[in-house]
Design a protein around this nucleic acid. Sequence first.
RNA 1: CGGGGUGUAGCGCAGUUUGGCUAGCGUACGUGCUUUGGGAGCAUGGGGCCGGGGGUUCGAAUCCCUUCACCCCGACCA
Length: 480
Amino acid sequence: MAKQNDGFVQHITPQAEDFSRWYTDVIKMADMVDYSDVKGCMVIKQYGYGIWELIQQEMDARIKETGHKNAYFPLLIPKHLLETEAEHVEGFAPEAAWVTIGGNEELAEPLCIRPTSESIICSMYSKWVQSYRDLPVLLNQWCNVLRWEKSTRPFLRTSEFLWQEGHTVHMTQQEAEEETLKMLRVYQEFAKNVLAMPVLIGQKSEKEKFAGADHTYTMEALMLDGKALQMGTSHNLGQNFAKGFDIQFLDKDGKKKYAWQTSWGTSTRMIGGLIMVHGDERGLRLPPRVAPVQCVIVPVAVHKEGVLQKAQELFLQLKHAGVRVELDERDQSPGWKFNEWELKGVPIRLEIGPRDIENKVCMLARRDTCAKDAYSLENIDRTVIEMLDDIHETMYTQALAFREEHTYDAKNWDEFMQGIEQKHGLVRAMWCGETACEEQIKEKTGVTTRCKPFEQEDLGEVCVHCGKPAKQMMIFAKSY
RNA sequence: CGGGGUGUAGCGCAGUUUGGCUAGCGUACGUGCUUUGGGAGCAUGGGGCCGGGGGUUCGAAUCCCUUCACCCCGACCA
C-alpha cells in the first residue's frame, strides 16, 4: 500500500506478517477514524460513519421486514437488575463500567453503563407481558454499549461500540428457536448481499456461548490473515431471563407460564470485517452497497475548455440515476486524486478529459479488479449501475474463493497441527464436544472452536484431539 | 496483569550513547507563477512547553528520579 508522509512509497500487503499494522494503516489513511483520549474509544469520522449509516439502513429494513419494531431503553442499568440472571452477571461483571456519583452525591445504588440490554429490557417485559395475547414481543434497538476491554482495536474491539440488538418474547420454545434461526439467516443474507462477504453459520460450543443463553448461533467470516471473526450472533435465551425477571403470561389453558426469549445483535465490528476481507495492497475496497461514494468523477486537465462543464453534467446525470456520486474538483493533480480514492475504496472512478470528450467516451476504473477501460458516454448512468452490481458479485466470489482455499480438513491430530503450523485458515474436524478437550486444544495451539456448522459432514468416528467418540463436525480457527 | 518498545511541528522521523551554538529533516499547510491522462516544478512563508512533574548542572530533548499516555507480543475477552 502506498504510504503518504515519508517522502517515498512503501508497500505493505495484507498477507504480510504485519497484518495488524496494515489494518490500522488502512483505517487511518482512508480517514475513517481518529483516536479519543478515553482508552479504546474511537471517533468515527464522516467517511467511516457513512459506511455505518448504510449498514444501518440496509439492516434496519431487513429487521422491520421480518416483523420487528424499533424502541429505545435507558443507557444506565441499576445494579440489582444486572444481577438478576446469575450466569449473565458473571459473564459481564469483568467488563462492566459503573456510575457511582450523581451531582455531588454518592448513589445509593450504582448504575451500570449498559454492556448489553437484556436485563433492563427484561425488567420492562415483565410488566408488559400478562397474557398470551401480548405475545410475541418483537423489539429491536439501535444504540451504543460500553465494555471495559483490556485491549482494544479499532472496530474489532472498542470499549464503546454501536450496534443493533433485538430482543423478543415468545409463547413456546419452538417459536423462540424459529426466531433465533430466522434472524441468523437474515444476518447471513445481509452479509452476502450487502457486505459481499461469505459467512459460515452454526452453533457455538458450550464454552463460547452467550452468558445467560441456552444456546448461541453465530456467523463467522474468514479474514485475509487466516483468522476468523464473529460477525453476528443470535441467542436462544430459553426461559433463563424469564424466570429471573418473572416474565409470565396467562395462557389459553388458564395456566401461568414462563415466556421464551431470544436476543441477537450485529455491531460496528462488521466494518472491521469488511476491511480485513476485502482490502488489498492499495488500501480499502468497499463493496458498492456500503460505499458512501460509489463513483467518483475525476476531471483531467480542468483548465481546458469544456472539461469541468462535462464533468458537472455527468455528475448530475449519475446523481439523478441514484448513484452516490462525487465530483472531485480539488486543485490537485489527477494522479494524486486517483491514489486517494483508491485508498478510500471507492468502487468506480470515472475519468473525463479533453481526449474523451472528443471521442464521446469516458474512462471507468474498477477498484475490485483495477481494470480501466473507455466506455461510451451514451447511457453512462446505466453502465455505472450495472458495473456496481458486477463489482459486488466479483468481490463476493473472490472472498468465497479465498475462504475455500483456506479451509482444510483434519482427520487426526497430526493433520490438525500440520494445518495450523503450515497454513492459516479454518480447520474442519470431528470433535467430542467436551469443554475440557476444547480448553486443551486452545492451550496447545491457540486455536478455538468457532462454530458447529449446520451442514455437517462425517469426517470420522473419533475426536481429532482426545480420541473419544466424536459427536459433531466443528470448525476450528484462530480468532479475533 | 506479565514481557518488550515509543513519546520531538498536522503526519512520519533524526538528534539522546559522549549534556553545549538559534532544535533539524521529509511531507503536509499558506502565498505567487508555471503545470494537470497515475502521488507536478520553482520561489517564498508560517508552524515546537522535545508527553507531564521534580532533580543534577554555568548549561538538559540529551543524565537521574517520578508519573502519564500509546503501540506490539502474551494473558483476558460472548
